Simulated assay, not measured.
Amino acid sequence: MPQINQLAENWYFASQLFWLALIFGAVFVVIGLGMYPKIEATVDARDRKVADDLAAAKAAHAAADTIEDQYRQQSDAARAAAQAAVQSAKDKAARDAEKRLAKVDAELAGKMAAAEADVAAARSSAMAEIESVAAEAAGDLVAKLSGVKVAAADAKQAVKAVLHG
Rank of each mutant, 00 (worst) to 15 (best):
A85P: 02
R79P: 02
T42G: 09
D154E: 15
A122T: 06
A56W: 09
Q70G: 13
R72A: 11
K92P: 04
L17C: 13
Q87T: 09
D118N: 09
A106T: 02
R95Y: 01
A153Q: 15
D91E: 15
Q70C: 10
A135P: 03
E131A: 03
K38E: 14
E136G: 01
G34F: 06
L163P: 15
E136T: 05
A153M: 14
S88L: 12
A57K: 12
E98A: 03
A14W: 07
A8F: 12
G25K: 03
Q3W: 09
K111P: 00
F28I: 12
A59T: 10
A113R: 15
A153E: 15
E68I: 04
A106E: 03
Q73Y: 13
E136F: 04
K144Y: 08
Q74I: 10
L17D: 07
V119C: 07
Y71D: 12
D76L: 10
G34S: 05
A85H: 02
A153V: 12
N10R: 15
A84S: 13
A57L: 13
D44W: 06
G139P: 00
Q157A: 12
Y36V: 07
T66H: 05
W11M: 14
A137E: 09
G139M: 02
K99G: 00
H164L: 11
A161W: 12
Q73W: 11
V50P: 00
W19M: 04
